[in-house]
Design a protein around this nucleic acid. Structure first.
Lengths: 349, 349
DNA sequence: CTGAAAGCGCTTACAG
DNA sequence: CTGAAAGCGCTTACAG
């Protein structure tokens, strides 16, 4: 029990079972691993009995060391507190579990040094794959992406080289947002994005502006608003507040590169007595499930974050099987604000 | 490289370093573990050089097996997609990391069978502690809570016995919600909670109703509304919708045992053309950070989920040091809706 | 100051 | 059909 307290391991080991069953460790091991044809029926039966009796479960640490395979995967996320990341983490965890793997979860707080710390720590733990959600460039990442253990990049492509990838076409998502505003009769709009953004936010903003231009909106009617950002909510809030402070008009259409930015806009609008959607149509990209409940004023392009996990695991499996790097571009979809997406049967009370 | 691909381990082992440095494995091990006084200065120097050269990092699997200590902790959450859980997970991960531990994250989807699967799987991996967020009763939990590796229960107490605990005083939180509505002049109110709730939701509802009674509100002015629930949002939505369907009045005050339930109420109100907060004051318990941005109509009792991680880790450390089971009851706090809690400096553009 | 040896729990050729 | 032995990478008495 003292041992169990320190180690976290059940006390029963192969040796315990072997002794109780009066057979060798090898034999127990074979039974545990399903090689029942390698022992007599009685032996198998006896061993199984003892296993059940003492509640034996194989120790993964010993097994990992011997097999040189841990069945462990590390997920590094930029910020677990962000609902987008949480959804991706949840779906990946479920998919890994179904495939027989266990997930380490590491929150890098968008910091290159922490990302590297985790990369090395996870290697020490013998993980067989990495899932990097919205990673940042770092020396360690460069080293790791040059070979060795498979890495799947999610949302954001490898900033330090090539890599397998799961995400959407951000340029098209931005363009679709532009089409939506255009379809609403809007001929003047602002794109809101973080100042120190990644390719993701830049692509979304670029796709939006380019499409408006090609629809014939003059470039002086396309505002590019940005703010330095701790969080995206702050970015949205600051970008439009500064616009007002500068004495400019609130634009009739706004595209936010993330839902969080739109939430910031909403707060700024409230403070400025601007009514959304009456005075201004807001469209964003992400499609947080909460929007249908809390933000009926928002139209959002839905990104299927809940499907990412399945794709990530399929990609990992293919990489383990020796396949080359590949990309999985999932389809986004415009979600209309009035169309509540959850259908609830009336059956209570 | 083939090995590295399969194992995820860097190829350099103690043996590699020892060979390159022309010393024994024992000596390298001592240097790695900082026992520099156990070797001559030149030897230490030489070994360090080789370590840096080949980029050696100790293999945790080998170390865990030998030391019988993994520095691994398992967190089991009921549903990672719930922002409350995500915040708790994020804060715990950070605190564990600071203490030198790595976290497995397991999503039990509120299912007893999955919870048990994970409990046993994590034991196989040699975890030294468990953090159970909103766990459900299960046979495995009963077994595990009877001894062995420390468990910290978060939000919800151990439903199968005793246990260390981190959470708030839910009865008081409910009472505080009642006091708030009372202070707003409300003398008739409804409590909304899920039909198949835990002690958490029941305590919050009971604390609320009891306080209203003791304030002098007659019991027929205290409505208890509930609905069978997939998600809390659905619960809130269904509970009030059914009320209207039954031809009853929308109550002037509503207490939701969670923010998510309040979000459901908001949607139902919108569909019924009820204006919150003009027609109805809503108070809830949780204090999601998003509320200040998206739900200005909501007053919420803030639970310090972001502080849970620190408390959890302190509790784990104390348990490892042989301390007895204890509880950490954190303080909740009423957050007013008009009072935006984030102060943003105006410094952009 | 340094190294050979045992052993953590497991798997797997190999021999019988 | 079964077991003794080697070894995954590490740590740690023990001997010198």
């Amino acid at each position: 029990m003292t041992t169990a307290k320190r180690t976290g391991l059940s006390s029963a080991s192969l040796a315990t079972v072997a002794a109780k069953a009066g057979v060798s460790i090898s034999t127990v091991s074979r039974v545990v691993n399903g090689q029942t044809h390698r022992a007599s029926a009685e032996t198998v039966e006896k061993v199984r009995q003892v296993i059940a009796e003492v509640g034996y479960r194989p120790n993964h640490v010993g097994r990992s060391l011997r097999r040189q395979e841990s069945r462990l995967v590390a997920m590094l996320v930029a910020n677990l507190d962000n609902p987008v990341m949480a959804t991706i983490a949840a779906s990946t965890e479920a998919a890994l579990r179904d495939a027989g793997y266990v997930m380490f979860l590491c929150d890098t707080h968008d910091r290159a040094d922490l990302q590297d710390d985790y990369l090395y720590a996870m290697r020490s733990h013998g993980v067989q794959g990495y899932v990097l959600v919205a990673c940042v460039p770092s020396p360690g990442l460069k080293e790791f992406s040059e070979g060795g253990v498979p890495i799947v990049f999610v949302s954001r492509r490898n900033p330090c080289g090539e890599g397998a990838f799961v995400g959407i076409d951000n340029i098209r998502a931005g363009a679709d947002a532009a089409d939506y505003l255009w379809s609403q009769g809007i001929r003047e709009a602002a794109a809101l994005y973080p100042l120190q953004g990644s390719t993701v936010t830049r692509d979304r903003a670029a796709g939006f502006c380019d499409r408006l231009l090609s629809l014939g909106v003059p470039s002086d009617k396309i505002l590019r608003l940005t703010a330095p950002g701790l969080s995206h909510k702050d970015v949205g809030y600051l970008a439009v507040r500064d616009l007002l402070t500068a004495g400019r008009q609130w634009p009739p259409g706004i595209m936010c590169v993330s839902d969080q930015i739109a939430y910031g806009v909403y707060r700024a609008a409230r403070e400025a007595n601007v009514v959304i959607p009456d005075d201004c149509t807001v469209v964003s990209i992400d499609g947080n499930a909460l929007n249908a409940w809390l933000a009926p004023w928002l139209t959002s392009i839905c990104v299927p974050h809940g499907d990412y996990g399945r794709e990530v695991v399929e990609l990992l499996l293919s990489l383990w099987n020796g396949a080359g790097l590949s990309e999985r571009i999932l389809q986004h979809q415009l979600g209309l604000p009035t169309q509540l997406q959850v259908d609830i049967p009336l059956k209570s009370l």
